[in-house]
């Protein structure tokens, strides 16, 4: 590894530490997080290894993996970690960095559309969100149709797009607070 890439990787490490908290450095690789995770069996690297990758500054491996997008935000890892680390916050930090650096994919798109809708309307409506998502990931169509039919039959799809008064303020929150 050249000195230049090493320096850049350490920059990545400190960015993750800044976003997810300095406790991360105290990780003892005990695996409590992985063994608490409901989707751990699908993850590679495991959440435990993901923390290690960040601490070693291995940016590429830390950002380009399925693990980030399999996190359900259930926070079991976070309430159980014996070092007070918040593994879910590590995942969020990595997603945030990935999104900022333009990492693309179906999962990133879903999050992107979600945030875009908040930014422009202040609230979320499932219908347009799903529609936009299906454009990038048509494989979800069957499920969405099934679900859509179920919800429409119960009158639970919002008919009109809700837009709040304070849209500009919300837009500023999204743009200015995200450094």
């Amino acid at each position: 590894m050249s000195a230049v890439t090493a320096a850049k990787d350490m920059e990545f490490k400190s960015e993750v530490l800044r976003l997810a908290g300095p406790e991360m450095q105290t990780c003892i690789q005990c695996g409590t997080c992985s063994a608490s995770c409901p989707t751990a069996h699908l993850m590679n690297p495991s959440i435990r290894k993901l923390v290690k990758l960040c601490l070693e500054g291995r940016k590429k491996e830390a950002l380009h993996n399925e693990t980030l997008w399999l996190c359900t935000s259930c926070l079991l890892c976070t309430v159980r970690c014996p070092r007070g680390i918040r593994p879910k916050a590590v995942v969020s930090a990595l997603k945030d960095i990935a999104e900022r650096e333009g990492v693309r994919g179906r999962d990133a798109s879903y999050e992107e559309f979600f945030l875009k809708q908040i930014k422009s309307n202040g609230r979320i409506a499932e219908l347009p969100l799903t529609a936009e998502f299906l454009l990038v990931y048509p494989q979800a169509a069957v499920q969405s149709m099934q679900m859509g039919l179920e919800l429409i039959s119960k009158g639970k799809i919002a008919a009109k797009l809700e837009r709040i008064e304070g849209r500009d303020e919300v837009k500023r929150i999204v743009e200015e607070l995200r450094e």
Partner: peptide, 17 residues
């Protein structure tokens, strides 16, 4: 406004919302 649900990765933004 929306709280961001589980889809806002940036904690500052989530806190702001």
């Amino acid at each position: 406004n929306c709280c961001g649900a589980t889809h806002v990765s940036n904690e500052q933004v989530a806190t702001g919302l």
